[in-house]
Amino acid sequence: MPAALFWIFACVMLIFGVMVIINRNPVSSALSLVVSFLGLAALYISLDAFFLGVIQILVYAGAVMVLFLFIIMLLDLKAERRRDFNLVTLFGGIVVVVLFVKVLFDVCYGFQHGNAVFPALQPNPHGDTWLVGMELFEQYKLPLQVVGVLVLVASVGVVLLSKREVK
């Protein structure tokens, strides 16, 4: 992928990420998050991770964000009215974020291996999804089943949590 496309998608991802936290209306925040995830999926595809890019769109931009929008509309949340800011939180948040960005730049520009350009990939006849599947089902059989149990427990837990009070 040309460098220009990387910068376009990275900017889309970051700008809509900022929109998530500055919008007052929760529905606009959720829709900005969808666009941010689409930019992220494009970055995955630029890294030759086609399977993860598609999963990102299907699972995150599709399922998870529909769940968010559904809950926002179910609770009928209005745009947040402006309250007086907690000054300590605001100041602390800004200081922590500025320090974090400074550390980030220091680490990235002191990381010599990070200046490597894309190493060449050999063309493979099977494609990305086949390779991820082989890795998953050959080396990660047990974790895959554990994750399956986790998802089962989570769905049972959600049903329990959303029941009315049990007498």
């Binding site: 460098a3 990420g17 936290i21 939180t89 922590v96 960005v101 980030l104 990235c108 490597a116």
Partner: peptide, 25 residues
């Protein structure tokens, strides 16, 4: 071509945005 540092920077900035959101909202 974008380098590894560019991707790490984008990832770190996205993390910072999320972090700021948790602290400020």
């Amino acid at each position: 071509m974008a380098t590894l540092n560019d991707y790490l920077l984008a990832s770190g900035l996205l993390f910072t945005i999320g972090f700021a959101g948790v602290l400020l909202r």
